[in-house]
Amino acid sequence: MGLVWWEHPVLQKAALFYENGTGGAADDPYASRNAPFINPAAHLDKIKYHSDLDYMEVSHGPTNVTISHASVAAGSGPGGEVGLNGVLQFPATVTNHDLLTHGLGYVPDFMVIYDGDVIYPGRPVQVLSDGRTRKVAANATSSVIRLREWAVRTSNSMAAASRTYTVIVFREPRAPSGIVLRHWDPVTGILTLARGRFRSDRRYLQVVPGGTPFGFAKGRTIDWDNGTIRYVDPDGSVFEIVPASFAMKVRMSSEPNDAPYGPSMAYAGSFAGSSSVLVKVP
């Protein structure tokens, strides 16, 4: 099973791949040995390059944007309660921030990075011991990349915080142009493949360690247990917003206030996060 470069002028495909066994004629694109050429999505482990795949060409960034998150006022418990164990109010505030105007005219793929990791919806960016938490999630429109912020507050106020986010925006795969499947320019050193869909002078997302890579989770980042959640970053950092001291009791307003509190409502599971990969932009 050798490493094969194929370019097919009728099918308009170009690919570098490992053969899928030895079945069929080597020059037959539909032979089982050439299955990665015809159906790359089903044989990603054998693909080094295929013109049908989206290699996530960078349109904007990496761009650093600093957001000044406002302070959050303290919350209060139910009126007349005595011996209150704690207050958690969610959400206390909701704010939108524009991070970057991309102007592509369509909703693009993108990444927003904080503290070295690509953020996931609800990623905490400010966590205090009594449960005060500031969370963010990123979204895109046809013109901008935005950050949505909300907070969980307690009976204590939360100070303002400045956070820097890195934004990367990817453009849609380019439409083929011309008829040349492979071209090397010895003067500029630029390699062009698949009728211009790939050029070596463009920037693409890379999976590679070293430099300043960003952690990207390949699976789940949030777990639910005991009525609350644990967040685990791609780098293994763990966040839990409900403190171990938080408990609850239920009583009628006419009943005495001597009922005991229940057990801790903090996370009690064992979720350790998912595997991750380091990505970077040259």
Rank of each mutant, 00 (worst) to 15 (best):
G2V: 04
L3S: 10
W5A: 07
W6N: 13
L11M: 08
L11H: 09
A15Q: 07
Y18I: 00
Y18L: 01
E19H: 14
G21V: 04
G21L: 00
A25W: 02
D28T: 12
P29W: 07
Y30N: 13
S32I: 12
R33L: 14
R33Q: 15
F37H: 05
I38P: 06
N39K: 13
P40F: 02
A41K: 09
Y49P: 04
Y49S: 02
D52A: 08
L53H: 04
M56F: 05
V58D: 02
P62W: 03
P62E: 03
H69S: 12
A73W: 08
A73M: 06
A74V: 11
G75C: 04
S76N: 14
P78H: 14
G80E: 13
V82K: 15
L84I: 14
N85S: 11
N85D: 11
G86H: 07
V87G: 08
L88E: 10
L88S: 12
F90S: 13
T95H: 06
T95A: 13
N96Y: 03
H97V: 11
T101F: 03
L104T: 02
Y106F: 10
V107I: 09
V112P: 09
Y114R: 03
P124T: 03
L128F: 08
S129A: 14
R134V: 05
V136C: 01
A137D: 01
A138F: 03
T141C: 01
S143K: 07
I145T: 03
E149R: 01
R153C: 06
T154F: 06
S155E: 15
N156E: 13
N156T: 13
S157L: 10
R163N: 06
T166I: 04
R174N: 08
R174G: 08
I179R: 02
V180R: 02
V180Q: 06
H183G: 13
W184R: 02
W184P: 05
P186M: 07
P186S: 07
V187C: 01
V187Y: 09
L193A: 04
A194L: 08
A194R: 07
R195M: 13
G196R: 12
F198C: 01
F198H: 10
R202K: 14
R203Q: 14
Q206I: 05
V207A: 01
V208C: 13
G211A: 08
F214C: 11
R220L: 15
T221H: 04
I222W: 15
D223Q: 15
G227S: 10
G227R: 08
I229A: 15
V232D: 09
D233Q: 11
P234T: 03
P234D: 07
D235E: 04
G236P: 00
V242R: 00
V242W: 09
A247H: 01
M252W: 15
G262T: 07
P263V: 04
S264M: 04
S264E: 12
A268N: 15
A268F: 01
S270D: 09
G273I: 15
S274Q: 10
V279C: 06
V279S: 07
K280V: 09
V281L: 02
